[in-house]
Design a binder for these strands. Structure first.
Length: 939
RNA sequence: GGCCGAGUGGCGGAAUUGGCAGACGCACAGGAUUUAAAAUCCUGUGUCCAUUACGGGCGUGCGGGUUCAAAUCCCGCCUCGGCUACCA
């Protein structure tokens, strides 16, 4: 039996785990057929970014969960697709490339090798034939192809679907204006389009930074100043799909929390757009009548400031207006005497990131432009301010400010002494000071009844909204509008290590861009990354691909010279469709064969961390819907069921506070007081909290922290596998608690699970023998009635718990099985074999080994999952509780199927109950068969 | 500030529909085995009172409520964690 020939009586994962991994590899045990045979199951893990640090213990948590489901369902006869790959584009590899001046592909491949080794070491049953990496040229060829689909699509708002560009209706006046106007018109509709977007440009580092790399207007690395500058960027029109992305959530089997996160992120709001006239006051009525005739224009003219509001009912209370510092009207509206102050204010705002602006939200700042607009409701002039609490990227970048009914406007108005006019009466039921609100001394942002609102006075908020929207519409001064917090997706990065855009910019004879864009022909894909000499940033806000050799950068097609797009796609791109490629990873004719796509999609179970709850899932859903609309996939949603695994924290740490001279203290943290780690042995529990053993007046803090390099509490799976084995790691991660919960790591816990596997081994293998032989207690006897009951109960629990992904309790039931049979001198082979099959999804290496020891030549991966007989799991007699007034007073043993009358009778005749009941009057008897009998009594 | 989640022994956690709180594991203690230790096996282990045995009181973050019965349902708080952050 022992292939290496030497004696191995003890459970030795270091030997059997590599053995079975090699077996699965050589026998292609988990190779999945191109098309499912029978019922299909597509189970997907969120593929990892292969960082230089290798796997951490958080990865195997979700991966083990899906692996258990896959192994379990294979045994239940399903055709399972379970692939793995790598999301390998990304910043760390590029940073490494800059530092060492080596191509990022080299470090990426090295990291992928490490990840693959670690994943194989854990015994996951992936079909490795399907491995893909987003950085594979054969892969990103199709990422580029999908980009071209996006570029060639527009969103038909009426039909609510994406359609090819050649189906876009071109208005006659546009058609007549010539080719260039038609081209520009088309570009306005494409799902992929170019626009000026603000980026964080850091001149000192010579690079553009992500929002999270900027703090207080300085770069995270090096503290250099960062400016927000507009740059021509690729955008994806995800907002067009906002309503579908929101509505289709209803059909998905996801946790409500995650759905809500997505809904909030999309952030749909309804309200109105209103144009405020900004010309001279005596021209106002002329403008009004003009608007009555022309109607509300699609794009605002120069003589108006267009705003978006969700509360058009508060129009009469708009006492000032605010535009964002980046608003295109800033320059034009500012009067000469305010120019200097405005310029200074806008420069300061430009130096701040969105995040910094919002972090100091309490203190509103702003500057007066000197200009006024006319409130269309009452014709009175209102001052126009510039303030960074208004964001250029939301709505129209301008607001009407109603300080009486918006807390932000209220703060601002207080600070700058702007009139506050209440126009909503909160009513009697209002908790706060109703009179203070009406007097404009307190802000109220709820709904109520209109006051001081001309003809609308007396209307409820909702009636008012409907009426004024209609009026604005007829007067051509506004219209109903919908807005989203979701922005169009900024889809380009000034980076080297990403997918190149398959886009060419036409150049004129002097080498300047003509504005004409030419997509790379599908047959010319892929556009590979060029070799470049160095990866260091320039001092211009230009991507590293600007340094590419001319042969790459300046292709000539049909005598026309082009410059390639030198931005690259963001890391999200590759993960937007990888699940489709897994279905058909080698196809060089199309991104996925329609037949295979139809057979395998949608994904039946998708497991990953909650950190991707919003962006990745939203982006992938968006791409999928475009592909669906264009007829390339057959499902509207890619991820039918989603489960988020919880975070694994480091081992619990105890800390106490100490002063500089070394005395313990409970004082708050301040200069001279430090937090020091305490050993578990020096800690006692005192009441609700922990305290120091040597001085129990000193509080000890007990908490598990996120694993991080800086804290030094990171657990490396390599170490765990070396010391305890992969099967122990797998089971421990499942046994810690529910999959979705956040839970702290514990080394002694792993050791405990290893003890269980040791016992399982010794239950079947004679560990005192010289060679591997089956334990003498294992025989061909038939099971006793009790053994049969335990076996079937175990099968039942493990089956339902595994199917319900309650892995922690499934493991507990298997532990009980082992505890029971280890005590038994007679362990029928039938029971042992069924147990091994139950264990196999959880501890596949050990199970395979035991299966072989029990005399089987083939892998157990496709053995039928054990069946249970429910009638065998039941007891003939059970013990139930007898309560008096809800308190447990006795326990009685009764036939399992005893009815109410019988139960009450037995309970009444119980020795103890006779005694109690003799002194009491029974008012009521509650009998729950199989549970309890409760006597309600009075003296 | 907003949203979401969670509070059960020394610790991780279990507990169908409201129906015997603490499954399983860790840790700890005692015992067996051993020259000894490790390993293994057995026993005990919420807490307080009582201990002659049977026992009894309390107990699922806190305070109320509904109910024959509440970890579970309702109302009001507290604490911790995660996400998010001026979205007009």
């Amino acid at each position: 039996m022992n292939q290496t020939g030497h004696c191995m009586p003890r459970y030795n994962p270091a030997e059997i785990e590599p053995k079975w991994q090699a077996y699965w590899d050589q026998n292609e045990t988990f190779k999945t057929p191109d098309l499912p045979v029978g019922e299909k199951l597509y189970v997907l893990d969120m593929f990892p970014y292969p960082s230089g640090d290798g796997l951490h213990v958080g990865h195997p948590e979700g991966y083990t969960a899906t692996d258990i489901v896959c192994r379990f369902e294979r045994m239940r006869g399903k055709s399972v697709l379970h692939p793995m790959g790598f999301d390998a584009f990304g910043l760390p590899a590029e940073e490494h490339a800059i530092k060492t001046n080596t191509p990022p592909r080299i470090s990426t491949e090295k990291n992928v090798t490490t990840f693959r080794r670690q994943l194989k070491m854990l015994g996951f049953s992936y079909d490795w034939h399907r491995e893909i990496s987003t950085t594979d040229v054969d892969y990103f060829r199709w990422t580029q192809w999908i980009f071209l689909v996006l570029y060639d699509s527009w969103f038909d708002a009426e039909q609510q679907r994406g359609r090819p560009m050649d189906e876009l209706p071109i208005p006659a006046d546009v058609q007549d204006a010539g080719e260039q106007v038609v081209r520009e018109y088309k570009d306005e509709y494409r799902l992929a389009y170019l626009a000026n977007a603000l980026v964080n440009w850091c001149p000192a580092l010579g690079t553009v930074l992500a929002n999270e790399e900027v703090r207080d207007g300085l770069s995270d690395r090096g503290d250099h100043p960062v400016h927000r500058i507009p740059l021509r960027q690729w955008m994806l029109r995800i907002t067009a799909y906002a309503d579908r992305l929101e509505n289709d959530l209803a059909s998905l089997d996801w946790a409500d929390g995650i759905k809500k996160l997505q809904r909030d992120w999309i952030g749909r709001s309804t309200g109105a757009e209103v144009d405020f006239f900004v010309g001279p006051q005596d021209a106002f009525s002329a403008w009004q009548s003009k608007r009555c005739e022309s109607g509300y224009p699609r794009n605002p003219s120069d003589d108006v400031l267009r705003i978006y509001t969700t509360r058009p009912d508060t129009l009469y209370g708009a006492t000032y207006m605010v535009i964002a510092p980046e608003h295109p009207f800033v320059e034009r509206l500012t009067t000469p005497e305010h120019r200097k102050a405005v310029r200074e204010y806008c420069d300061r705002a430009a130096a701040k990131s969105d995040r910094d602006r919002t972090e100091n939200a309490k203190d509103k700042t702003g500057v007066f432009t000197g200009a006024f607009a006319i409130n269309p409701a009452n014709g009175s002039p209102v001052p126009i301010y510039i303030a960074d609490y208004v964001l250029i990227s939301y709505g129209t970048g301008a607001i009407m400010a109603v300080p009486a009914h918006d807390t932000r406007d209220f703060e601002f108005a207080k600070k700058y002494d702007i009139p506050i006019v209440a126009v909503v009466d909160p009513g009697d039921s209002f908790d706060g000071e109703r009179q203070a609100v009406i007097a404009g001394e307190e802000c109220f942002s709820g709904e109520g009844t209109a006051i001081q609102s001309g003809e609308y006075t007396g209307l409820s908020t909702s009636e008012f909204k409907v009426k004024i929207a209609a009026t604005l519409q007829t007067d051509g001064q506004g219209r109903e509008a919908v807005n989203y917090k979701l922005r169009d997706w900024l889809f380009s990065r000034q980076r080297f290590w990403g997918e190149p855009f398959p886009i060419l910019h036409e150049l004129d004879e002097s080498g300047e861009p003509t504005g004409v864009i030419r997509p790379v022909a599908v047959e010319d894909l892929p556009v590979n990354l060029p070799e470049i000499k160095d990866y260091k940033p320039h001092d211009r806000p230009e991507p590293p691909l600007g340094k590419a050799p001319d042969e790459w950068l300046y292709p000539v097609i049909d005598g026309v010279r082009y410059r390639r797009e030198i931005n690259t796609m963001p890391q999200w791109a590759g993960s937007c469709w990888y699940f489709l490629r897994f279905i058909d990873p080698k196809n060089d004719q199309c991104f996925v064969s329609p037949e295979k796509e139809k057979a395998w999609m949608p994904i039946d179970l998708y497991v990953g961390g909650a950190e991707h709850a919003v962006l990745h899932l939203l982006y992938a859903r968006f791409w999928h819907k475009v592909l669906y609309d264009r007829g390339h996939v057959t499902t509207q949603e890619p991820f039918q069921r989603l489960v988020n695994q919880g975070m694994i924290l480091g081992d619990v740490e105890f800390t106490a506070r100490r002063t500089a001279d070394g005395t313990w203290t409970n004082d708050a943290l301040q200069d001279g007081i430090e937090v020091v780690p305490i050993s578990v042995n020096d800690v006692i529990k005192r009441g609700e909290t922990f305290a120091l053993k040597e001085d129990d007046s000193i509080k000890v803090e007990s908490r598990a922290h996120k694993m991080s390099k800086s804290r030094g509490n990171v657990v490396n799976p390599d170490d765990i596998v070396r010391e305890y084995g992969a099967d122990s790691l797998r089971i421990y991660e499942m046994f810690m608690g529910p999959l979705e919960a956040t839970k702290p790591w514990s080394m002694t816990g792993v050791n405990g699970v290893r003890g269980f596997l040791d016992r399982a081994w010794r239950m079947i293998v004679d560990h005192s023998a010289e060679t591997i032989v089956i334990h003498e207690a294992v025989n061909d006897d038939s099971l006793t009635a009790e053994q049969l009951k335990i076996l079937h109960r175990t099968i039942q629990s493990v089956t339902t718990d595994t199917a319900g992904m309650r892995f922690n309790t499934a493991v507990a039931r298997m532990m009980e099985f082992v505890n029971f049979f280890t005590k038994s001198k007679c362990r029928p082979r039938e029971a042992m074999e069924k147990f091994v099959l139950l264990l196999s999804p959880y501890a596949p290496h050990l199970a395979e080994e035991l299966w072989q020891i029990l005399g089987h030549a083939e892998t157990l991966a496709y053995e039928p999952w054990p069946e249970f007989d429910e009638s065998l799991t039941r007891d003939d007699s059970i013990e139930i509780a007898v309560q008096v007034n809800g308190k447990l007073r006795a326990k009685i043993t009764v036939p399992a199927d005893a009815d109410r009358a019988v139960l009450e009778d037995i309970a009444r005749n119980d020795e103890k109950l006779v005694e109690i009941l003799s002194q009491m009057n029974v008012v009521k008897v509650v009998v729950v068969p199989g549970r309890l009998v409760n006597f309600v009594v009075r003296p």
